[in-house]
Design a protein around this nucleic acid. Structure first.
Lengths: 160, 160
DNA sequence: TTCACTATTGATATGTTATAACATCCGAAG
DNA sequence: CTTCGGATGTTATAACATATCAATAGTGAA
C-alpha cells in the first residue's frame, strides 16, 4: 500500500496543475474529451480537496455559467469516475478527485467526519482475507468499496 | 475472519427465529425496547435475506398497518443498526440484517449485483494495512465500510 | 462540402433516499 | 396522579440521482 495522501498536501496549486495536465494527456491518448465542464469539475474537486456532493459541484459550475441542472454535474462526475480521475465516496454520497489517476487501483479512503477531507490509499483487498472469503464462497468480486471514517490529525488536534 | 454467511442459508425459518429471539434477549438485557415496528422490521430483513431499501421496508410495514410515512422505516432501521441487529450497505443505500448480532464486529459485505443477496463476513481491517496507513497519517478510524460488489455463485451459474 | 454519425450538452420532469419539525401517545419512575 | 422521556404519527421538505427528448457540435467518409 502506498502512503495515504491528502492530509498534508503542501502545495495544492502544483498538484492541481499536474493532475489536470495528466488528465488531459490521458484523455488525448484515449480519444476522450475533457470538455470545459468536465475539466472545470475536476479542477473543483482538486482545489477543494475534500468530498463534494454533486449539488455542491453543480452550484460552483452554475456560478460560472457552466450549466445549472443536476444532470450537468452528474454527467461530468460520471465521466471523471469512469475515466479514473475521481472516485465516489459511498458513505457520503460525494465525490473526490483521484490522487493518482491513470493507474489501475483499488482505492481505500480515510474520511474525516469533521472537515470532510479525504485521503486516498491503496488496498489490494481482493488479495487479502476478504478475497479468501469471497473465493471460499464462490463469489466473484468486481468492485470494492473501502472507506474508513474518523478524525484527521488536524481535527483531532483542534478537538483536544 | 469467519466464513461469509448468506449465499447458502439452508433454513431461513430457523435463523429467523433464532436471531429474533437473540435480538429480544439482547434488548431485554440492555433495557432497549424491541417494539412491534422494530421487531417486524428486523423480521422483514431476516426473511428477505437481502439488502432492502428503506422504502421497500416501509411498503411492507404499511401493508400491515405498521406506519406509512418514511420516518417510521428510518427510525426502525436506525434503531436496528445502532443496536447491532442490522447494517447499512452504503453502496446500495439499503439495509440488511446482521447475521451475528451482539458481537462487536467490523462487517464486510459481498453483494451480488444481480440478486442483491448480501453475505456478511468479518474483517479486522483496522489491524491490517489500512490501519497501518491510518496510523502513519495520524488518522483515527472510528468506523469502516467494506463492501465488495460482484456475482454470487448462483447468479454466476445462471449467467454461464 | 455535405452528409451521416456519435458524443455532448440543454432542459424539463420525475424518481429515490433521507431528515426536520412538531404533535401526540404511553409506560415507568417518582 | 403527574411528569418525563422514549416512541410514534404526521406533514413537509431536503438531498441525491436519473429518464427522456431535443438541440448542438465535433468527426470521419463520400
Amino acid at each position: 500500500m502506498s502512503d495515504p495522501i491528502g492530509f498534508q498536501c503542501a502545495d495544492h496549486g502544483t498538484c492541481r496543475t499536474t493532475l489536470l495536465a495528466r488528465a488531459q494527456a490521458h484523455c488525448d491518448s484515449l480519444g476522450l474529451r475533457l470538455t470545459p465542464v468536465r475539466r472545470r469539475t475536476l479542477e473543483i474537486l482538486l482545489v477543494e480537496h475534500r468530498a463534494l456532493g454533486a449539488y455542491d459541484v453543480l452550484a460552483l459550475l452554475a456560478a460560472e455559467g457552466l450549466g445549472s441542472q443536476p444532470p450537468v454535474a452528474y454527467r461530468a462526475l460520471d465521466f471523471l469516475v469512469k475515466a479514473g480521475f475521481a472516485h465516489k465516496i459511498e458513505a457520503l454520497n460525494a465525490y473526490t478527485a483521484c490522487v493518482h489517476p491513470g493507474l489501475d487501483h483499488t482505492p481505500a479512503f480515510l474520511i474525516c467526519r469533521t472537515c470532510e477531507t479525504v485521503a486516498e490509499a491503496d488496498t489490494a483487498l481482493t488479495k487479502g482475507r476478504l478475497g479468501d472469503a469471497a473465493r471460499a464462497a464462490g463469489f466473484t468480486i468486481e468492485r470494492t468499496v473501502v472507506e474508513a471514517t474518523g478524525l484527521c490529525p488536524d481535527c483531532a488536534d483542534r478537538a483536544a
